[in-house]
Design a protein around this nucleic acid. Structure first.
Length: 477
RNA sequence: GGUUCCAUCGUCUAGUGGUUAGGACGCGGCCCUCUCAAGGCUGCAACACGAGUUCAAAUCUCGUUGGAAUCACCA
């Protein structure tokens, strides 16, 4: 049987990290097995629907290169791929399930506030549906009369339900723990549980990958499969991605979504690589993986059982790694929009990119690295004192005057040439390199630390501005 | 509270009876060096606890503790 997995998000807002990781694992399971990855939109809760959310889903998957083989936009043999368009299908199967004895019609009015103001110590009691005992013929009559109803699952079995999970192994749950939940809501739309079973079966999904919060309800799914005489899928329950030891990474709280991270200057590929490793490892010491490489080495058996805390520090490191690995031209292209935001002065941007690339771990860090270029900051002459470089204000003043003279005469304004010239000057004057270069760097930047040395800053700023700033420094001293 | 699940450095993890418990991030140090990075080398740092099984336990069993999930006409 062909491996088929589906990513089935509900369009309730942006794409959060846990969601994306689940999608990744689904994608990888399918692709590592030469199968298909299907996109299905689960919009059965009209109250939570957010306009534009499906576009975010499409855009995100495309951005990281997880292309789907079937989906709402591209179709496929098992459509439609949007649950709200499948309403009739669920209705049919719900009624069929009642006929098969797997469910019953229920006419109880549901209490909206039921699960609310419970006091702390109250032990939830299992709902025992009186409607279960209404004869089918009578129930049908009431429905025909237009009475509002839901379809509720029957849990008739006793004893223990056993199923196998790829990551958790054998799980046993007592049937007594299961409640007879609603399958078809009074608005005629299915609940998540029911829609999933129907769709997964009809779409021939082989591996169901989902959060481990569904472990305890899995026996209910299996009961539905059983009632229909269908074979349940292979279950792959994955632990959550945590914000800290106690809390899941959640949509609320503004925890980082994929979009947020991209906006903060993280590269999609780095994000994907990082989250692949949150709960999975290849069994080797390799950590850097492209999506194609992941496809080759991924196996669901190496998924972890316990939750993983999202560590943005390590993500940042990995992002830096990806940035450094970029073709210089590519980095320059990515940096351009950031330059546009904070630089109006005309400078050597190509060269700036070459010095920045090994120094930033996120694109957003570009701004803090180039601030001095736009405008020389106010600085104290004390900056010219440096023990290791053996400089102070006096030496600096002398060095700057000498450097100014040399630089005036330089026409080939490259880093190599400038460095050679200033080095020669130092030798000629019997000074250490640093005694010339350090003061120049301070004069050009007004900052203690800069991305690049004196001559590199000079190349970035250009000859005119370089001489300008050295003159200013001389005045200051 | 019932039930289910989980537990190795601060974090992500390797490890399936015998290892100096390995790697990565972070942190410290050194080298390189025109500052800062990058790069190279290096150091600190973990088997939650208690019994048991065994010649031998991070690995198996039981218990304790801690944590998570679930118990909706949300997904």
């Amino acid at each position: 049987m062909k491996a088929r997995t589906r990513f089935a998000p509900s369009p309730t807002g942006y794409m959060h990290i846990g969601n994306l990781r689940t999608a990744l694992y689904e994608y990888l399971i399918a692709k590592s097995l030469g199968g298909d990855f299907i996109l299905r939109i689960e919009d059965t809760d009209q109250k939570r629907y957010v306009e534009g959310a499906t576009d975010i889903i499409y855009a995100t998957l495309k951005e990281v290169g997880m292309n789907w083989d079937e989906g709402p936009d591209i179709g496929g043999n098992f459509g439609p791929y949007v649950q709200s368009e499948r309403k009739d299908i669920y209705g049919q199967y719900a009624h069929k399930l009642v006929e098969l004895g797997g469910a019953h019609y229920c006419f109880c009015k549901h209490d909206e506030n039921e699960s609310e103001d419970e006091d702390e110590n109250a032990v939830p009691v299992k709902f025992d549906d009186p409607c279960k005992h209404i004869p089918l013929s009578e129930a049908k009559k009431r429905i025909a009369n237009g009475e509002s109803f839901v379809v509720r699952q029957n849990i008739n079995k006793k004893g223990t339900s056993v199923f196998e999970d790829v990551v958790y192994g054998k799980i046993e749950i007592d049937y007594d723990e299961l409640d007879e939940g609603v399958l078809l809501k009074s608005d005629g739309l299915p609940t998540y549980n029911f829609a999933n079973v129907i769709d997964d079966h009809l779409m021939q999904i082989s591996h169901v990958v989902r959060g481990n919060e569904y472990i305890s309800s899995t026996p209910k799914y299996n009961l539905i499969y059983e009632a229909f005489g269908w074979t349940p899928p292979i279950y792959v329950h994955v632990p959550p991605v945590m914000k800290d030891a106690q809390h899941k990474l959640s949509k609320r709280n503004g925890d980082a979504s994929f979009q947020d991270l991209v906006q903060k200057g993280y590269l999609p590929q780095a994000i994907l690589n990082y989250i692949a490793l949150l709960g999975w490892n290849p069994g080797t010491e390799q950590e850097i993986f492209s999506l194609d490489e992941l496809k080759k080495v991924f196996t669901a058996e190496r998924l972890n059982k316990s939750p993983a805390i999202f560590d943005s520090t390590k993500l940042t490191w990995m992002n830096g790694y990806y940035i450094r690995a970029l073709e210089p031209q590519k980095f320059h292209e990515l940096a351009l929009p950031y330059y546009a935001k904070c630089l109006t002065r005309k400078v050597n941007l190509e060269f700036l990119s070459t010095v920045l690339q090994p120094r930033v771990e996120t694109l957003a860090q570009i701004a803090e690295n180039v601030d001095f270029i736009e405008k020389l900051p106010q600085y104290s002459t004390a900056l010219y004192q440096n023990k290791k470089m053996k400089t102070d204000e006096i030496i600096a003043k002398n060095s700057l005057a000498l450097a100014l003279e040399v630089l005036r005469g330089v026409d080939v304004w490259t880093n190599e040439n400038l460095f050679a010239e200033l080095k020669a000057l130092a030798e000629k004057e019997g000074l250490k390199n640093g005694q010339i270069l350090y003061p120049v760097r301070i004069a050009l930047s007004g900052k203690e630390t800069t991305p690049g040395g004196a001559t590199e800053l000079a190349v970035i700023l250009g000859k005119i501005e370089t001489l300008n700033r050295i003159n200013q420094a001389l005045k200051l001293l």
